[in-house]
């Protein structure tokens, strides 16, 4: 999987100030459970995201602990009150020490 860690964050169009908006995010990641075996019968090592943090401006607005039960290429929707013009940053960390992040700008009208 060449693009591990590729992130897409999607905001709705025409955000109004103070509106509660859905933010959708997808990260490409195999999310290997560690419980599977390859064709030769060798266990495939666990490889999954276990820590996710969302920042809106300087505020940490969400913090999540993920486990092997989350699907490959995890997709999530969460809601944020768009009360300021500020960057929204998502930081994903995995059990092998990988860190991936992406930022979008929220500009309420």
């Amino acid at each position: 999987m060449a693009e591990v860690g590729k992130i897409r964050i999607k905001l709705p169009q025409g955000i109004k100030k103070g509106e509660v908006i859905p933010v959708k995010a997808l990260i490409t990641h195999p999310m290997e459970t560690g419980l599977r075996k390859d064709k030769a019968g060798k266990p495939i090592p666990a490889y999954y995201i276990n820590d996710v943090k969302v920042y809106y401006g300087n505020d940490l607005v969400s913090s999540m602990e993920w486990t092997i039960a989350i699907s490959a290429d995890p997709f999530m929707t969460f809601y944020v009150k768009a009360d300021k013009a500020a960057p929204l940053k998502i930081v994903y960390k995995d059990n092998k020490g990988g860190t991936f992040e992406d930022t979008v700008q929220i500009n309420p009208q």
Binding site: R8, K10, P22, K24, L26, D73, F75, T77
Partner: peptide, 11 residues
């Protein structure tokens, strides 16, 4: 309603 991962593929 909460979203469909395929939306990203649509983009």
């Amino acid at each position: 309603e909460e979203g469909n991962p395929a939306e990203m593929l649509l983009d």
